[in-house]
Computed example of a mutant assay.
Amino acid sequence: MSTTHTIHKHLILQSQQGDQAAMSSLYDLYAKAMYNICRRMMGDEEVAKDLLQESFIDAFQKLPSLREINTFSSWIKRIVVNNCINAIRKKKLDTAQLEDGADFIEEEEDDFEYTQYRASQIMQAVDMLPEGCKAVLNLYLFEGYDHKEIGEVLGVTESASKAQYCKAKARIRKILEEERSQNVG
Results as ranks from 00 to 15, higher is better:
M1N: 09
T3N: 09
T3Y: 15
T4Y: 04
T6A: 13
T6W: 08
H8Q: 12
K9S: 11
H10R: 14
Q14Y: 09
S15A: 14
Q16K: 09
Q17T: 11
A21K: 13
M23T: 03
S25L: 12
L26Q: 03
K32D: 03
R39N: 10
R40C: 08
M42H: 06
M42A: 07
E46C: 03
V47I: 13
V47N: 03
A48S: 10
D50Q: 13
I57V: 15
D58E: 15
D58T: 15
F60W: 05
F60E: 07
P64T: 12
E68R: 14
N70C: 02
T71S: 14
T71I: 01
T71M: 05
F72W: 12
S73Q: 10
W75M: 02
I76A: 06
K77M: 05
V80W: 09
R89Q: 06
A96Q: 11
Q97N: 10
D100Y: 14
D100I: 12
A102R: 13
I105F: 01
E106H: 11
D110L: 12
F112P: 01
Y114V: 02
T115R: 12
Y117F: 14
Y117R: 02
R118G: 02
R118K: 10
Q121Y: 04
Q121H: 02
Q124N: 00
V126D: 06
D127A: 08
M128W: 02
M128H: 01
L129G: 06
G132T: 03
G132L: 04
A135C: 05
D146T: 05
H147N: 00
G151Q: 06
E152N: 02
E152H: 07
S161Y: 03
Y165M: 02
Y165H: 05
Y165N: 01
C166G: 07
C166S: 10
C166N: 00
K167S: 01
K167D: 02
A168E: 04
K169E: 02
R171P: 01
K174F: 00
E178Y: 07
Q182C: 07
N183F: 06
G185L: 09
G185Q: 08
